[in-house]
Simulated assay, not measured.
Amino acid sequence: MSDKRNFSYVVSSFYVFYPLKKETLETFRDKIESKGRSLGLVGLYLLGHEGANATYSGLLSDVLTFESYLADALKAHADSEEELKLEFKKSPSHFQPFKEFRVKVREEIVTLGREDLVPKDRKRHLSVDEFHEMLQRDDVVILDTRNDYEYEIGHFKGAIDPKIKEFRDFPEYLKASGLPKAAPTLIYCTGGIRCEKAILAMEEQGFDNVYQLEGGILKYLEKYPQGRWEGECFVFDHRLAVDAELKPTTKFKFCPHCGQPATQPITCKRCDAGAVVCTKCLEASTHKETCSRNCAYHFQRRPDKKGAPQEKSFLAQKLTEASGEAHHSG
């Protein structure tokens, strides 16, 4: 079946570990925010002394204008003479997946809870082709560094799920994992940034044969949409996930109760509206067989009383909130 959606927007993301002057971060934040908004972009841009991590969306011409501006802007606020290399990952969207363009200053541009653990150089990056080739081997350990709900909707064939709720739990997982420290180990994440710190955490604990996927899952799917990837890839914006062709998911919806990916269609027990709820919420309580938190609350109090359908879908509600900051990752 052909996809009839109008993909008029481009979603672009990048990260760079590149020392920036602490004393000018606030000024730099204002400049980046002003530039992005003047171009009509929406998204989230994280800045810190260790570098930048961003995902944003707009018309292709505006995205490219913004990206041509970024290199000089970053160099102007650099705290070193290091060479700057930016690599952008792009995918199509038929809607704007953020509410507005925001720039935040953070201690870490990806939160491991270790401000001292900053990548200083390239640590055993594998190109997409090299990673794909190693995935075929029987002697490698494939370790997902993402959260459990990300793994659940898609992962590389044979990958281990660390079952963590957030990235800062990864070092503790390693300590208790019992994984063979000398075995060749492939690690991956959405865009590559988590692996940059994960490999350092693994080295601290004696893992000395670890390789990371350069550019992450998004870069892999650009070249191997029918490769070793199974399922879809969770993303931290209102697309929720992208399929193997990097297009916004048509399979998953936001669960109205927990916000996680959902596939179970229901008829709301309070207002009779159709909705999609995740399996975990349905299994947790009968009052979650409702289309919203509001209906769940009222149905729990008065299961015998019907109510009017909700005026906004879960996605519409999310798009009116300044959300996404705590979960931005890659």
Rank of each mutant, 00 (worst) to 15 (best):
Q96H: 09
L59H: 14
V63Q: 05
S91M: 10
A54C: 09
K75A: 08
S61E: 12
Y56C: 04
L84A: 08
S91T: 08
E81D: 14
S57T: 15
E83A: 15
S57P: 11
K89R: 00
F95H: 14
T55R: 03
S61G: 02
D72N: 10
A52W: 02
E83G: 14
L59E: 15
N53C: 12
H49K: 15
S91G: 11
S68K: 13
A54H: 02
E50I: 08
H49S: 14
A54K: 02
N53D: 12
Q96S: 09
D62Q: 12
E67V: 04
G51Y: 08
G58P: 13
S68E: 13
L64Y: 02
Y69K: 01
A76P: 00
E87P: 01
F66C: 08
E83F: 08
F95A: 06
K75C: 08
L74Q: 12
E83L: 13
H94P: 12
L74E: 02
E50Y: 09
S91R: 11
K90T: 04
Y56A: 04
L74Y: 13
F66P: 01
E82M: 14
T65I: 12
A78K: 11
E87R: 06
T55D: 01
S61Q: 00
S57C: 15
S80W: 03
S80M: 03
N53T: 14
D72W: 00
K90D: 09
A76H: 03
K85G: 09
T55A: 10
F88W: 15
L70H: 03
E50C: 09
E82H: 15
E87S: 12
S91W: 02
Y69S: 01
L70T: 07
Y56D: 04
Y69T: 04
G51I: 04
P92K: 06
Y56T: 07
K90Y: 05
K75Y: 01
T55V: 07
H77G: 01
A71Y: 07
L60N: 06
E50H: 06
H77Q: 09
A73T: 02
L74K: 03
E83T: 13
G51F: 05
F66T: 07
G58N: 13
E81S: 15
K85A: 12
A52G: 09
E67I: 00
A73H: 06
E50S: 08
L60K: 04
E67D: 10
D62S: 05
E82G: 14
E67W: 06
E82P: 01
E67K: 11
L74F: 07
P92T: 02
P92V: 00
V63S: 04
P92E: 00
A54E: 01
S91H: 04
K85T: 09
T65V: 11
S93G: 06
H94C: 05
H77C: 09
L60C: 01
E83R: 15
D72R: 10
K89V: 01
E83V: 14
S57R: 10
A76W: 00
L84Q: 10
S68I: 05
S68R: 11
T65D: 11
G58Y: 00
Y56W: 13
S57W: 08
E83C: 11
H49V: 15
K85R: 05
A78L: 10
L74M: 03
S91P: 02
S93W: 06
S80A: 09
S61A: 05
G51E: 00
S80E: 07
E81C: 09
D62V: 05
E83H: 15
G58L: 01
S61W: 01
A73F: 06
A52R: 14
